[in-house]
């Protein structure tokens, strides 16, 4: 499969990059690691006239940490680079875990943090070669009027399948976004639109520059569990991220957060988790949390491997396991003593 023709630019500053992207609007496409984009280009899902390469933009490549400001990761840091960082491994173990669960060693060496957060949503009827797609009417994501995954649906049901987003959501991350007018920092959840067709809220000319993750508190632990068929390569058919912090001694939640991926149009932060703050941990409470997550998850029939029902049923089980593992990790760190 040949990549379609395009003009290619390597801007040397973030300002130049945003200007180029804004100028060419819908005809421009930014490229970071390219692992997600290259397949879309080969399948003619994206046919940009101008490809803007971020590789030469300075200062997007670093990892900085301080106790006060937390972790700052440049958008172009590769997953492999992130995982190799001792601070990330120690203080943000679930971030490293999720990065290790993305694709293969090769994809981790190429794929970037920013690119992973901005990856397109997936659908069995969309992520296909042009010949295959010719046999079907154009779907919403291809600017048509039908959905093949959910019959008679008026909207697109393509699923958000990033691994890092749920983990960064539960860690309370924010993203720094550059646009031609300047820079702004927004909570990560605002990066996602909840629309299968256009899953991000970025406008033409906007680029994710940096991810900012606050320092986790001392008595906290987390887990990321990923359901898939082939242990390498596959996108999550379900991903569950949990972080929780314990009040010292008496087994009370100071904070608990749960997020899902692979079962909705955007990464989903489970709202019911907020109500558990300051309450004593019981089995019923964890059951309730799993039930709330189950209700918020809406996998549809647009991924190969496992049925939507199975994936949804697994939400309960994965949430419970992830909470158990997080409790164990938090206790190990001194939360339960």
């Amino acid at each position: 499969m040949k990549v379609p023709k395009f003009e290619y630019a390597q801007p040397k500053s973030i300002g130049e990059c945003c200007k180029l992207l804004e100028e060419h609007g819908a005809n421009a496409q930014a490229i970071a690691g390219g692992t997600n984009l290259m397949v879309a280009l080969k399948n003619r899902l994206k046919v940009p006239k101008m490809l803007v390469d971020l590789c030469c933009v300075p200062n997007l490549n670093g990892i900085r940490y301080s106790q006060k400001d937390g972790l700052n990761v440049g958008a172009l840091v590769t997953l492999r680079h992130l995982v190799a960082d001792p601070v990330v491994r120690e203080k943000y173990a679930i971030f490293a875990r999720a990065a290790l669960d993305v694709g293969s060693a090769q994809i981790q060496a190429m794929g970037t943090i920013g690119g992973n957060l901005c990856q397109d949503s997936c659908c069995l009827y969309y992520n296909r070669p042009p010949m295959w797609r010719q046999g079907l009417e154009a779907c919403h994501k291809l600017w048509g009027t039908v959905c093949h995954a959910v019959r008679r649906s008026k909207t697109c049901w393509a699923t958000y399948c990033g691994d890092l987003a749920p983990v960064l959501l539960v860690l309370g991350a924010r993203v720094k976004i550059a646009d031609p007018k300047g820079e702004k920092v927004i909570p990560l959840s605002e990066l996602y639109s909840g629309d299968g067709k256009v899953p991000h809220t970025l406008h033409p000319g906007q680029v994710v520059m940096e991810v900012q993750v606050p320092t986790p508190s001392a008595n906290s632990g987390g887990a990321y569990l990923k359901l898939r068929v082939r242990k390498t390569i596959d996108y999550p058919l379900l991903g569950v991220a949990v972080t929780l912090a314990l009040e010292g001694g008496d087994g009370t939640f100071r904070d608990v957060k749960v997020a899902l991926t692979g079962v909705g149009k955007a990464p989903l932060l489970i709202k019911a988790a907020d109500e558990l703050k300051g309450k004593k941990i019981t089995d019923e409470m964890i059951e309730g949390l799993a039930e709330a997550a189950y209700k918020q998850a809406h996998p549809v029939n647009n991924a190969s491997g496992l049925t939507p029902k199975y994936r949804r049923d697994m939400v309960r089980i994965y949430v419970k396991s992830a909470v158990d593992q997080s409790l164990e990790a938090a206790t190990r760190r001194g939360g339960g003593t």
């Binding site: 990549v3 290619y8 490229i31 390219g34 290259m38 492999r80 994809i107 060496a109 190429m110």
Partner: peptide, 19 residues
């Protein structure tokens, strides 16, 4: 299609030569 680019394993089918 794995090759080594600057010490990292890379999929050459997913890498543009200009980069």
């Amino acid at each position: 299609c794995t090759v080594i680019v600057d010490g990292e394993p890379v999929l050459s089918c997913m890498t543009l030569a200009v980069r």
